[in-house]
Structures are given as C-alpha cells and as structure tokens.
Design a protein around this nucleic acid. Structure first.
Length: 858
RNA sequence: AGUCUCGUAGCUCAGUUGGUUAGAGCACUACACUGAUAAUGUAGGGGUCGGCGGUUCAAGUCCGCCUGAGACUACCA
C-alpha cells in the first residue's frame, strides 16, 4: 500500500513492522489522545487486565476508572490515577456531572483550571452532553458526542479506523435513556465477615433442584462481596443513621421508642421543636424518607446530627420478612418467633439468587446464626408454548385468569405441576390444560359418576360394617394394594418436594389401575344381582379408592378434591370431626398413611401379568378378526416354571372373562412343540468375556433347537468361539418362545401366548346370544329406558335364533332385565298390523341376518 | 466472559449402577368396543436421543469440544 495520505482519504495507510504479545507492551507509555485535561499524576501507560478479549482489534483498550468498577480495580492495581476534576468546593469529581454533561470550567476550581486544563481544546467540549438523550434539545438525528470526538481524532490523523458500535449499555427501565456509572459513597454490611458461616449453613438447606444450591447459590456465596445496602432514592425505608457534620459522632436508631427519646434530647438542645414520634399511633408520623429527614438529633457532645440521606436497599425488606411479618422484636418474643422461624419451605423464581434467597440467608445468619428456610424450591419460568419468554410486546402472553375461567384453577395447576418439575422452565400450552381436564379429571369424574349411579340405586352409604380384607375378592385386594403403594410413593414424593412425581403417580393410578382395569373388570359387580357381600365389598373398595384419591390430590387440586370428598362423605359420614359431625372439608382430614399389610407385591405382579396376557389375547383377536363377543375355547401359555403357573392360575378367571375365552392351558418347558430362541444376556456375559461378546451373541443367535434344549436340561453349554471353548450357564442365556406351530402366537418379552381360534357350533351359538344381548342393550339405551326398567322382548322368528334362545334364554333375560323373551313366527307386515310393534326396528343380529325386534317396558 | 440448567417422536415428558428392538401420554390413521360413552381397546406411521470426537466388548446414559435456548453475576473497552 502506498504510504501517501491525503487528509480526506477514507483509508489510512499502514505497514506491519512487528508482531508482539500483549504482555510485551505492558509498561509502555503513550501520549494522551485527548489532552484536554492533565491528570494529577502520570497516567498514560499500558497495563494488564484479564477482562479484555481479543475477539476484535488489538486487545488494547482505554479504561475509565471513574466510570467502571473493573476499570477502577485494574487501575488501582497498577497505580494509574483516575481522571479527576476539582470543583469550586474542592471536591473531586469525574469529568461528567450528574446531568450527563462535561463540567464547565466556571464551576471548577480556578487553580485546577489554570494548571490542569488545556482551555483552548476543552472549551470546544465543555458543557456538552455525553449522550443526546440527556439533552432535551437534541434528538437521535443530531450528531452525537461520540461522532464529534471521532471526527476530531480523524482530522488530527489520530484515528486509524472508525466504526459504529451499538452498546448494550444499561438503560433506564422507565425513560429508556442510557445510564452512566458513577463512583458513589455507599453503606455496606460486611457480609464477608460471615462468609464461611453462610456457606456452612447453606449446606444444611434442601435445595430443589440441588444444583441451584450447590452451583449457582453456592458459587455466589464463595465469591461473596460486602452487601451494598444503601440506595439514593427520594422515598423509602431510611438508613437509621444520624451523624454529625464532621462524621465523628454517629448514632444508629433501633426503634421508634429510641428515636423518640433522642428527639426529646434534641428538643432540649433546641434543635427540634416538637416530637411527633412520641405518639403510639403510627398514623401520626411517617418513618419514611423524606419525612424522617426533618429529624435532627443531638450528639453526646451536643452537636447537631443529620440523617444519612441514603435509603436501605428494598431487598433488605424482603430478607427481613421472617421478623417483620411478626413484628419481632417488638410484638413478638424470640420464643414466639421460633415457632415460624426458620421457615420449613419457601418457593420463588430461580432469578432470586441475589435477591430474596440471599437476603433471607444473610440476615438470618447475621442475626440468629441460623438458616431462614429449611427447604427451598427455586421455580423456573413460565414460557410460551414455543419456549419463548412471554411478553406484552410480543403478545405471546397467556392471561392466567382467562385460563382459570375456562378450565378451572385445578386443571391449570395440575397441568403446571404434572407437566414438568417446578424448577424447570414450563412451556405453557393451553392444549395441555385441556388434556389434563379430559384425561385426569374427566376419567376420575366418570369413575365417580359410575360409582354414584349404582350406589344410589342400592342406597349404599357405607353403613355396613367393613368387609374384612381377607374376605374381599382378589381384584379388590389388588386395587387396595396398589392404592396403598400409591399412598406410600405419594407421601415420599411430597416429603421430598417432588410434586411432579406425585401428580404423575396419581394420574397413572386413576387411569391405568382404577378406571381401565378395576372399574372395567368390576362393572358387573356393581349393577348385577342382589345386594350381596361381594357387591358391598366392591362399593367399599371403590369408595376407599375415591376418598383416598381426594385426599392425595388435595394439595394440587384442592377444589376438585373437596367436591369429590364432600360428595362421598356427606352421604356416608365416614369422617367425623370431634363433635361427631361429618367433617367439613377434605383439607381438615389427616393425610392418608399407607397400610403396609395391605400391600401385596406378588398380587400386583400377577395382576400385571393378567393385564399383559389379556392385552396379548386381544391383540391376537384383532389380528385374526375375532371380535371379543365371540367366545373362544382355549389359551395356551408356555410356562417356564411352576411359580409362573400358580401366578397365572390366581388371575385366570379375570383373564378369561376379560378376553372371553373358556380355559387356559400351560405348556411345560420340556414340551418339544415350542420353537425357541436363545439370546445372550449381555449384563452377565459382558464382565466375563469382554471383547468376545459379539462372537458369543452371534453364536447363540444361530443355536439349534436341540442345543437350546440341552442348555435347559444341563444348565450350561459349551460354545466354540474362534476355536476356544467357552462355557455359558443358563443364567447367561435368555430363552424365549418364538413360535408354536399350528397356533396363532403372540410374543412380548418373555411371555408367549397362543390362541385356539376354532369356532365350534356351540361357541357360535353363545356368540349369537351375546350379540343379541348387545342389540337389546343398545335398544334399551336408544329408547332412554332406566337401567332398572324391566322389559319385554319380541323378535322376528329365525331358526338359528330359536336354538340359541332355547339354550341361552336365562342368560339373555338376566343380562337385559327381560321378563318375557319370545320369537314371533310372523312376517314383518303382520307385525306392523299389531299395535304394539311401534316403532319397527330391523337389526343385524349376526352377519347377514336382519330381523325385526321390538322392546317395551313391562 | 464466568457459573448453572436444559436440548430424546409433530407436542409434553420418562429413561434405573452403561447391557443390545429407546418408552409413555397427546395428536394423526385404521379397526373394534359401547349399561363409565366428551370414556375405552387393538394395530399403524412417526427418532442420525442437538452436533463432533473419545473411553468401553457395549454409550441416550461416562469424558472433552462445539452448538442452540434460558437464568444469574460481571463487563461491554
């Protein structure tokens, strides 16, 4: 590049003469760039600082110790003086005054101006605002001081390159104007003196999540600095400190009573005329600044003491909450205070690290050498459904009142608590609230309605004595076992401040255990037959489940829980208060405790098996187009051992009725009908054989039926892996049934089932009987008959149907509350002729057979 | 910049001390069920577990780097 340069050239020519490390430049001196003001001592020297990046430029930057904490710190370390002006009062000032403009020379000390200011240069800049926003006469369009200075440097040939930078300098939240940092005098609390104790005490606090306590808050304590307590504001809580003008005498006021006493002294000295603070009525005086500033006190030496005008950081008020709320130490003794202090539990946003969490902890450590809270949940933010912060500006905010209005407080709260743990950010999606309403509350409401429907019919009010647990059927014992397991886990979850886990456990119990298994399987017990022990057992069991659920969910869904509980209890009066009246609220009841003697893990396991087997059979039916109303003869299950057989046998009836099959048969392991497959058990083989794993797994994959049978018989097998004999035990191998030739088969994990799909004539007839029941039930429902109404049924004659009815007449009548069931050997037209056949219904009984049917109340 | 959290199906989330086909619910599609019916069952599609590299016989899981989102603190020369 040519080194010629004309004044108006855009690019300054340059030449690289040497490359060097920044540290080699330290100590170099340079000429002052803007020599308006001469510093009090030599200042223009390169120093080292660790807070400057080399992302842009050379890594050499100017510092301004009077306007930045980091700059001030590094300057002090290296002995660089700040650029200081001396005003007419002799006070040291930064270059910019409190209105945001350069000091004018006329307010500065004459001697200082003469000795330190280059009047010719500075006169062009004195009085200028450093930001246009500070000057009401300027707009953003006017040239800013930054640009003015840059141009001046350019003209002097001192600027190598000028770029526009947008700073994210802090701005005033109200006026949006840029903010300048100033060094200010402040009052501090020397929290560094109790730093170690604060760290120690913090370790005893249960933080949710733990990482906030150890990480964010813990680190913050490790790097603790003194607490800057004072703020310069117009109105607020005053620092209770009065000082003499020379600062040599000072007093800290600890109560209104003390203040009043001191004012009296001051009146004696003639500093004050009256004492408003002698009144017992707080409405007679105001403790806040600026009113309190009128108070002048007298020092022991008899001098005037004025109040320090600074206020106390409002965070102090938050941190003082535990004492302030009970007005300790004035209206509350220490003993009384200790009833509520330290707090068992607090919750606030995770952004409160330096705010509430810190000030609570600092003050309690200082005052009582204690924690202020034993448990804390630092909750995350509620974001919009796309994970963006909600803001008015973006219009992505959700109005909580609208949501509560539409879905209710319970559904909203349940959604928020169950969806993600409180300390994680929540992506709030209104669809999710609706899902909770349908899934949990809808299901639970349905379950309750089902219970209430039949309980009312039978006038069940929990008046009978409790049916002993052992006399209740297996299914009742099962749901009670699950219920007590649930109580246990819920209690643990709440205790550990894991409400999300609790909510999810309740939700899955309601859906999977109670609604979709217990109630589904027990439906008949509620509506069929007389008011027997079995029926009472069913009512009592379901009642207990519903009542317990209302208690378990009450912390998260207080309103729904309350309604559910009261609807139950107002009828049964099972829970009474001490006056022997029905207790008024679920929230007054004791939280349930689990009865471990009712928990039967074996029972829970075999019920799980029953569900799994049923599901597999239904799947097989589906694949083979066999509707559930078609009874089938047999399920075949290969059983690995006797224990498996006895587990299944105990739930056999449940499975059979659920899937509408007549019998279950077991195949013993020795049976050679089964086609089996061996798989490697990586967990046991891994540690033993390491790198040979792959070869072993492959070898097991291709094992013949005979060799698999050998392992089962011998308990071990020797494999040849790359000419090496390797012995495996039965436990190293998983053997599963793959197929049963000639049957339709379903595999799931280590369970295999097969289904006999043969439909005999007798099974077909039974199917038709069931279809008939189904059609009659539908018609009953269509015609809005009550579930208790008895009916008369007439069906158009059909030969096949006649046989079915002969055989299943009692069954059909029982299922449908039919008093008379008859076939009429008449044509449709003839039926129409009869008055009673209105309206006419033609119904598909089985495929291809459509018959007229008529149903009427008896 | 430092500290911390999070990133798994279209969406919301599980995922044990690393163990071989990564799950659930919702949504979608199809079929069934129908005296709980704004419910239910079965089946189906849908995943390079944010990316790259490493440790290991084996990584969603452990380690390093990067990246995206968020919070706090400092700074923004």
């Amino acid at each position: 590049m040519p080194m010629e340069y004309a004044q108006n050239d855009k690019v300054l020519p340059y030449r690289i003469i040497k490359e060097t490390k920044g540290r080699d430049l330290v100590g170099m001196e340079y000429q002052q760039l803007l020599p308006w003001i001469k510093p009090l001592e030599s200042a223009f020297r390169v120093i080292a600082g660790d807070f400057v990046t080399t992302d842009d430029g050379t890594g050499i930057v100017h510092i301004a110790p009077t306007f930045g904490a980091d700059d001030d710190k590094v300057a002090k370390q290296s002995g660089i003086p700040p650029l200081i002006l001396i005003d007419k009062e002799g006070k040291r000032q930064p270059m910019v005054d409190r209105t945001g403009k350069f000091y004018t020379m006329d307010v500065l000390d004459n001697d200082f101006v003469e000795k330190h200011i280059n009047k010719e240069l500075y006169s062009q800049f004195e009085g200028k605002y450093v930001k246009n926003a500070f000057n009401s006469k300027l707009t953003e369009k006017d040239m800013s001081l930054d640009v003015e200075i840059a141009l001046a440097l350019k003209l002097e040939g001192k600027a190598f390159k000028i770029e526009k930078h947008t700073h994210n300098y802090p701005h005033c939240w109200r006026t949006d104007k840029p903010i300048l940092y100033y060094p200010m005098d402040s009052w501090f609390i020397r929290t560094t003196a109790i730093k170690d104790r604060m760290i120690e005490l913090n370790k005893t606090i249960n933080w949710k999540p733990e990482s906030t306590g150890t990480g964010r808050f813990g680190n913050w304590l490790e790097n603790l600095v003194d607490w800057n307590l004072s703020r310069s504001r117009y109105w607020g809580t005053p620092l209770p400190i009065w000082r003499t003008e020379d600062g040599k005498e000072e007093i800290c006021i600890s109560s209104v009573a003390m203040l009043s006493k001191e004012i009296d002294k001051s009146i004696e000295k003639g500093f004050m005329k009256e004492n408003k603070y002698a009144s017992k009525d707080y409405l007679d005086f105001d403790l806040h600044r600026p009113y309190i500033d009128d108070v002048v006190l007298a020092s022991p030496k008899g001098e005037k003491m004025m109040r320090e005008t600074d206020l106390i950081d409002v965070w102090f008020d938050s941190g003082a909450m535990p004492y302030a709320q009970v007005h300790y130490p004035f209206s509350c003794s220490e003993e009384e205070l200790k009833k509520t202090f330290p707090a068992d539990f607090i919750a606030e946003g995770v952004d409160q690290t330096r705010g509430w969490f810190f000030t609570l902890h600092a003050i309690s450590t200082l005052v009582f050498d204690s924690v202020a809270f034993k448990n804390v949940v630092s909750n995350g933010l509620v974001l919009d459904k796309n994970g963006n912060k909600m803001s008015k500006r973006l219009g992505n905010g959700v109005n909580p009142f609208d949501v509560i209005e539409k879905y209710g407080a319970d559904a909203t709260r349940w959604y928020m608590i169950s969806n993600s743990q409180p300390w994680e950010n929540l992506k709030f999606d209104i669809e999710g609230v609706d899902e909770v309403r349908r899934k949990l509350f809808g299901t639970l409401y349905n379950t309750y309605s089902f219970f209430a429907l039949y309980a009312n019919i039978d006038s069940f009010a929990y008046n009978e004595k409790e049916i002993p647990y052992k006399e209740r059927p297996e299914i009742d014992r099962w749901i009670l076992s699950e219920l007590n397991s649930l109580i246990k886990s819920i209690d643990e979850s709440y205790n550990e401040y894991e409400p999300t886990r609790a909510a999810r456990a309740i939700s899955s119990f309601v859906d999977e255990c109670l609604s979709n298994w217990y109630v589904r399987l027990c439906r008949r017990r509620f509506w069929k037959g007389e008011y027997t022990e079995d029926k009472i057992s069913a009512y009592q069991t379901l009642y207990t489940c519903l009542e317990t659920l209302s208690q378990l969910m009450s912390p998260i869904a207080p309103f729904f829980a309350e309604r559910l509980f009261l609807d139950l209890n107002n009828i049964s009066s099972l829970r009474k208060d001490k006056d022997n009246k029905p207790i008024e609220s679920v929230h007054y009841t004791d939280f349930p405790t689990s009865n471990d003697s009712l928990i039967d893990k074996g029972l829970e396991e075999r019920m799980f098996l029953a569900q799994k087997v049923s599901s597999m059979v239904l799947s097989l039916r589906k694949k083979n187009n066999l509707r559930v109303r078609q009874p089938l003869q047999k399920i075949l299950i290969p059983a690995p051992n006797q224990e498996f057989i006895s587990q299944i046998e105990k739930v056999e009836q449940l499975i059979l009725s659920e899937v509408n099959v007549k019998t279950i048969e077991f195949l013993s392991p020795e049976n050679n009908v089964l086609v089996k497959k061996a798989k490697a058990n990586f967990k046991t083989l891994g540690p033993k054989f390491g790198s040979k794993m792959k070869a072993i797994a492959n070898s097991l994959d291709g094992l013949s039926q005979e060799r698999i049978a050998d392992i089962e018989k011998e308990g071990k097998i020797i494999l040849d892996i790359n000419n090496e004999e390797i012995e495996l035990l039965l436990s190293d191998v998983e053997i599963v049934t793959q197929d049963i030739p000639g049957w339709v088969v379903q595999n799931d994990g280590n369970i295999t089932i097969a289904l006999d799909t043969t439909i005999t004539e007798s099974l077909l007839k039974e199917a038709i009987a069931r279809e008939l029941v189904n059609r009659i039930q539908n018609i009953r429902k269509d015609q809005l008959f009550e579930v208790t109404d008895f009916i008369r049924v007439e069906i158009e004659y059909n030969a096949l149907l006649e046989e079915v009815i002969q055989e299943y007449s009692e069954y059909i009548k029982g299922e449908t509350l039919t008093k008379e069931l008859s076939l009429r050997r008449v044509g449709v037209s003839a039926i129409i002729g009869q008055q009673r056949f209105e309206p006419i219904l033609k119904v598909d009984i089985i495929e291809g057979i459509e018959l007229a049917i008529n149903i009427s109340k008896v």
